[in-house]
């Protein structure tokens, strides 16, 4: 199965409550906390599209969009 290539990490800032789960558990430290305490994709180039952040997010705020 061809490794998926990341197109975009979408984080809905209105829904994100800054719980820190995605930042803490991202296996490649792609996400970091911004000034408002919300997650943002600091290093998208490291993302392997494993979707852990998307599936674990309690706010349904995160979506990993991959190249078709």
């Amino acid at each position: 199965m061809k490794r998926p290539r990341l197109k975009e990490i979408v984080i809905n800032r209105d829904w994100c409550k800054g719980c820190g789960l995605c930042i803490h558990f991202c296996p490649h430290c792609v996400l970091e906390e911004d000034a408002e305490g919300k997650a943002w994709a600091a290093h998208p180039e490291r993302c392997t599209c494993c979707r852990l952040c998307e599936l674990q997010c309690p706010e349904l705020a995160t979506e990993i969009i991959i190249e078709e």
Binding site: C57, P58, L60
Partner: peptide, 16 residues
């Protein structure tokens, strides 16, 4: 949305 559960509440993940 955003829903009423606290930041980091697991119930949101169950919904997800």
């Amino acid at each position: 949305f955003p829903h009423m559960w606290c930041p980091g509440c697991g119930h949101g993940t169950v919904l997800n």
